[in-house]
Structures are given as C-alpha cells and as structure tokens.
C-alpha cells in the first residue's frame, strides 16, 4: 500500500523580479514554500551575490580577508576577482564608507565608486548604503541617477527615506530593497507605502533585516517564515515579494567567528569555523524563504550553491 504524502495547497505566489542590464537575473516566482518542489514550482533558484566594499576592510577576521587580500584596495578589481575566479553571478557593492560615524565619505565619492563598478562589470549589481537613512537617501538618489540604464538594486530603503530613494528608483528604473527591523507588519506597511508612491510591484524586494547564526537568526527566520505564509496562504499581495538577506557582514562579526584558535582551542580552525557559520546561516535563511543572499567567503558560497542545487532536485 502506498503512502500518500500530505501536501499543502497554496493560493498565492511570489512575484518574479529581474534586475541588471546586459546580464539580467530573475528571482522569485515560487508558489510553494522554499524547496517544496513536490507541492508547487520554484522557477528560479535562490541567487547569491558576492560582496565587495568601497574601502579595504579593517575589522574582518583573517579567514574572510585571505581570499581577497590582493584586491581589497580596489572595488573594481575585487568585483572582477569575484566574477572571474569565484563565478559570482551578482555583485553587491557595500558603501560602508558613507557612514557619518565612520569614514563619512562625501556622496560624490560613493557615486564615483558605484559608477566605476557599474561600468566595469557586466553582471547585475546591488548597491548598498551604510544604514544611515539621511546619508543613504542622498547617496542612493545620486547613484540611481548616475547609473541610469544599469538596472541596479539599491538598498536599504527604509520608512524614513523611502520617498526620496523610491522616487529616484522610479525615475531611473532601478529595483529597491525595502528594509524593516524584523517586523512583518512594518514590512507590509513599507511595501504599501512604496506602492502608493508609484514604485511598480516588479521592482520591490523585501529586506527583513538579517541576523546571523549565533546572533538572533531565530527572529529573522520566524519573520521570513511568516512573510511567506502570508504571501502564499493568505494571498497577501503586499508581502508577495522576493526576500533579500544581507547576511555576510552579520556572520563575520559574530564573536565566535573572530576568536583566534589559541584563545579557545575547542572552537577549532577559525577558517573552517567561519566558513561553516556563513554556510549554515545561508542554509537557514534559504529554508526560511530567502531569494537572494549577499555572501562573502568563496568556500561558503561553493557549499551553499551545492545545497541549492541539491535542494532544487
């Protein structure tokens, strides 16, 4: 006698979102829970973007820095290495230097960096601000204009700057990543506001504000799960957007990732430890519903690609 496996039936689907110019990438489109390919379709596998920074990192553990040591002083070279050597299909430029509490780069510098990278690489490009709403609003607005035609994804767009960045994204046709602080109601509200502003539904992705394994990933996981349930089971169309997780920067600042082996031998080899923490974080976020991960270490990425391909069957 055969066993019938119970199946969930879904009434909603996640929108498909594309970005890029010469090379485009498409995300989303699923009409079942992540990797439940026995219940529905997942037309696009989750995507991985490799991150590059505007300045050489100062606080990365050695394990994260090692693969990029020769290129960290130039985001163009760095992006090139990610693509040629590690097969990156998307690049995420992190403009950390904009932070008024850090290097406080002038907006023009950030625009110049973004433009250089946008011209040098052909793969789709994500441009991520520093997390300061005001500075990001100015910088992302200017970058949207400077990179017209490049089909960027820009973020984080928040409830405090969505109208300024959103307007520029509409005018110059880029995708926005709408970030809210691990809260499903606020996520829905920001998507409604972006819609009211006139951002087309095929140019919004949700950033639920990722945490890392060991640093509160449970909350992110639970909110992402609920976002997917609302979209797929309750047809909540203001939550039916792909989800992006800017996760690597969270993983590599977790305390356990940075502790040298001589300080705590039982934690084991710091390189393998960091890679595993990043790969594990990625696997959890994928299972919660991530459509796009921003990752760092080539080996963690390799393992995550393998996982995705195995899970897609």
């Amino acid at each position: 006698m055969g066993v019938e496996i119970p199946k969930t039936s879904y009434s909603g689907a996640i929108r498909q979102i594309s970005f890029g110019s010469a090379n485009k990438v498409t995300m989303g489109g699923a009409n079942s829970f992540p990797f439940h390919v026995f219940e529905g379709e997942m037309p696009n596998p989750p995507r991985i973007a490799m991150e590059v920074y505007d300045h050489p990192p100062e606080d990365w553990p050695e394990a994260a820095l090692a693969p990029f040591k020769d290129v960290v002083d130039d985001p163009v070279k760095w992006a090139g290495k990610c693509i040629e050597e590690y097969g990156a299909e998307i690049i995420c430029l992190q403009l950390k230097g904009l932070d008024p509490n850090g290097k406080d780069d002038p907006v023009e510098d950030a625009v110049a960096t973004a433009s250089r990278v946008a011209e040098a690489v052909e793969v789709p490009l994500i441009v991520w601000g520093c997390g300061n709403d005001e500075k990001d609003a100015e910088a992302l607005k200017a970058i949207c204009e400077a990179c017209e035609g490049r089909g960027l994804m820009v973020g984080p767009v928040t409830e405090n700057n969505y109208s300024r960045v959103g307007a520029a994204a509409i005018a110059y046709q880029h995708v926005v990543a709408a970030m809210t602080p691990i809260d499903i109601n606020l996520a829905k509200q920001l998507n409604i506001l972006l819609g009211n502003l006139g951002v087309p539904d095929d140019r919004i992705v949700i950033d639920p504000n990722s945490a890392a394994l060991g640093y509160g990933i449970e909350y992110t996981y639970s909110v992402m799960e609920r976002i997917r349930m609302a979209a797929l089971l309750q047809e909540d169309e203001r939550l039916a957007f792909p989800i992006i997780c800017n996760m690597a920067r969270e993983v590599w600042k977790v305390k356990e990732v940075g502790i040298p082996q001589q300080e705590d031998p039982k934690l084991g080899d710091p390189e393998e430890r960091g890679i595993m923490m990043e790969a594990m974080t990625a696997s959890l976020l994928l299972n919660a519903g991530a459509d796009l991960l921003i990752m760092r270490h080539p080996e963690a990425i390799k393992r995550t690609r393998k996982l995705i391909s195995d899970m897609m069957g």
Binding site: I184, N185, L186, K188, Q189, I192, L193, A230, Q234, D236, R238, L239
Partner: peptide, 10 residues
C-alpha cells in the same frame, strides 16, 4: 488580513 498601519485605506 495581516495588520499594517494602512489596513483601512489599502
């Protein structure tokens, strides 16, 4: 319907 601040107008 999931709550958002726009539930009355959306």
């Amino acid at each position: 319907e999931l709550y958002s601040d726009s539930w009355l107008t959306n």
